[in-house]
Computed example of a mutant assay.
Amino acid sequence: MRFEQLEQFVALGVLRHFRQAAEQTQISTSALTRSIQTLEDEMGYELVKRSTRSVKLTPEGELFLEYAKTTLSELELTKKRIFQSVNGNANEKLVIGYTNKASSIVPISCGQFLAQYPHIKIEMQLQDQQELTRKLQQGEIDISVYSQAINSIGSDIHLPDQLVLFVSKNHPLAHKNDISKQNLDSYPMFGCFSESKQVQTMLNEAIDSLNKSSSIKVGSIEQVMAGVVKSDHFAIASIEHANAIAENSELVQLKTNKGLNHEQLVVQTSQQTSITEHVEHLLSLIKKAGAAFS
């Protein structure tokens, strides 16, 4: 049983005329007759009463007509849902906020996106980073794009400005200027939570990059500072805890080499934004363009 057979049966059930139903479904009358006979064979019941003057549906045919209508309606609804999932709603609008440093990336990426998804509207807003963060948190924009400096601690450790590493003042690394991942490998690590979901994501990524995900001990800033003072651990924290660290005379923040600054593109989505296939495609275009400009 094929969908076109259901369409042909519905046309016959509504028009009650073989020639008219055949014309509507763009097949010959004989082909329509064979299609109905095939349906009757598959169902095991007579669906249509034929006469020279009229076409009548049997009780079984009336039931099958309702089934055919429902099935075709569900088919169209499913097609629509799949199309929207892949291509977005025809009335969909995406709002993208970006800073000056990302102005060479976002318009190009959006142009490439619109070439593939012309029915989706895109609004681009140039904002400073603080306003961008506020709008993203409030759900006023769907995607934010900005560039931030990454300070290098040594040659192969790169952290966003929002993160700091610190140790006890008596730690062997306390006054070392050029620290590599190899230097940190032999020391256990503490980490403390951040109230910001975005900064916490940065913390998790930094911990992964240092290969400490499986061994790190996590706690509050008070617990982490107390643990660092009494051990050879080093610790990672968000900038929100920088003052508490600086005020503790037993702690030292690992020095960052300001001469090794890099720019990193940060792309974030609002929690209210559904990450559909087309949104994923737009995000990938932005990240790809960012990599080309970095």
Rank of each mutant, 00 (worst) to 15 (best):
M1S: 08
E7S: 05
V10I: 12
L12G: 01
A22M: 08
E23T: 10
Q24G: 01
Q24I: 07
T25Q: 13
S28V: 10
S28H: 14
A31Y: 14
T33N: 12
R34F: 02
R34Q: 11
R34Y: 07
T38L: 12
L39D: 03
E40R: 02
E42Y: 10
K49W: 13
R50T: 07
S51Q: 10
S51F: 09
T52D: 15
V55N: 06
L57T: 06
T58C: 02
G61I: 05
L63F: 05
L63K: 15
F64R: 05
A68C: 10
T71M: 06
L77C: 02
T78K: 01
T78D: 00
K80Y: 00
F83Y: 14
S85I: 06
A90Q: 11
E92R: 04
V95H: 02
G97D: 09
N100A: 13
K101Q: 12
K101H: 07
S103W: 04
I108M: 05
S109M: 08
G111R: 14
F113K: 06
Y117N: 03
Y117I: 05
P118W: 09
Q125P: 01
Q127C: 12
Q127E: 15
Q127I: 07
Q129G: 00
R134A: 07
R134P: 00
L136D: 01
G139Q: 03
E140R: 09
I143W: 04
S144W: 04
S147T: 11
Q148A: 11
I150M: 13
N151G: 13
S155D: 15
H158V: 04
L159W: 00
L163H: 04
V164W: 04
K169R: 14
D178I: 10
D178L: 05
I179P: 01
Y187Q: 08
G191D: 15
C192I: 09
S196R: 10
Q198V: 10
Q200V: 00
M202G: 03
N211T: 06
K212W: 08
V218H: 08
S220D: 06
I221Q: 04
E222P: 00
V224R: 11
M225H: 03
M225C: 15
A226W: 07
A226T: 12
G227C: 11
G227E: 14
V229A: 10
V229Y: 06
H233C: 10
A235C: 08
A235E: 12
A235G: 09
A237F: 11
H241K: 10
N243Y: 11
A246I: 14
N248A: 13
N248F: 05
V252C: 11
L254M: 10
L254P: 02
K255M: 06
K255C: 01
K255F: 06
K258P: 00
K258D: 01
K258V: 00
L260Y: 07
H262E: 13
L265Y: 00
V266G: 02
V267I: 14
Q268M: 07
Q271T: 13
S274L: 14
E277W: 01
V279T: 05
L282N: 04
L282Q: 05
L285V: 04
G290H: 03
G290N: 06
A292G: 06
A292M: 14
F293L: 13
